[in-house]
Design a protein around this nucleic acid. Structure first.
Lengths: 141, 141
DNA sequence: GATCTATATTCCTTAAAGAGAATACGAAGT
DNA sequence: ACTTCGTATTCTCTTTAAGGAATATAGATC
């Protein structure tokens, strides 16, 4: 992986926020939506961008796509992500993201990174992500 | 300075090379040309890019423009430049630049960062940079 | 098999950046 | 004054990216 490509991935705020959150662990798209409070297209596109460049990996889990940092990071990427963490320590936007993530987190620990986790299927009323209103919900409002 | 802007500055190889060289000390444009072996427009434009974003400062010295890293760097920039240094340690392109810089360096130590240094004016035959042929030279060839 | 949910892709518009050729500018030197 | 030298700017072209709206797809549920 070229160094420049890493920096290209880092030169967009949304992607920085995604990576910052990802440093805490795997997550599904709709959780990213909830944490960053950005529209689905935006999240999805930027995750795709990161994915094609190898900064994140993705796997399917039911309806959900779980994104995470690759197990073994190339040295340069590792260094730069550490550097990012460092730089972001004082930046409100990024810290707010982490706070919102933490509020989501209790569920995550038990249920995994999926929107409601793999066990979710067994629970009634927990089928929808609910973090963002669907188009039909929006029409009702 | 926004973090993203730093990364925007870092997402071009030429600029990475410039910064890598600049980490060794101030330098004039024609020395950059010699070290990077890139055309003048390219060097000048990228230095301009870095300058408008505050990553480097410039001062005039006779005909020469001396570029250097600002005395007191913002924390994020400092961290990222250190990180860059680290990442680049094993990369041939960047190391070759530093070698070529070192070959130029003896003159630099005594004469300063200008193409032939401030004292140059007093020496005969040392008025031209000579690292890159001028258009008229090229016509002759 | 129709429907719903989470996510991806396509299409469009707009903006920015990179490269190179040519030209302009400012400071010396003659 | 004119030239020369080092450097910056302008112009043009091509590529890339970002955002949003709309639409497509894949898996799960009924």
């Amino acid at each position: 992986m070229e160094l420049v490509q890493i920096y290209e991935c880092l030169c967009d705020v949304t992607r920085l926020r995604l990576l910052n959150v990802l440093a805490q662990g795997p997550l599904c798209v709709c959780h990213f939506q909830a944490v960053l409070r950005e529209p689905q297209v935006k999240i999805s596109k930027h995750l795709g961008y990161l994915r094609t460049r190898g900064l994140v990996t993705a796997r399917r889990e039911g309806n959900w796509m779980i994104y995470e940092l690759p197990a073994k990071l190339p040295a340069e990427l590792r260094t730069n992500l550490a550097c990012l963490q460092d730089c972001v320590r004082e930046q409100p936007v990024f810290q707010r993201d982490l706070e919102r993530l933490r509020k989501l987190a209790p569920g995550l620990a038990e249920n995994g990174p999926g929107c409601c986790g793999p066990t979710r299927r067994k629970r009634a009323g927990a089928l929808r992500c609910g973090d963002t209103p669907s188009p039909s919900d929006r029409r009702k409002a």
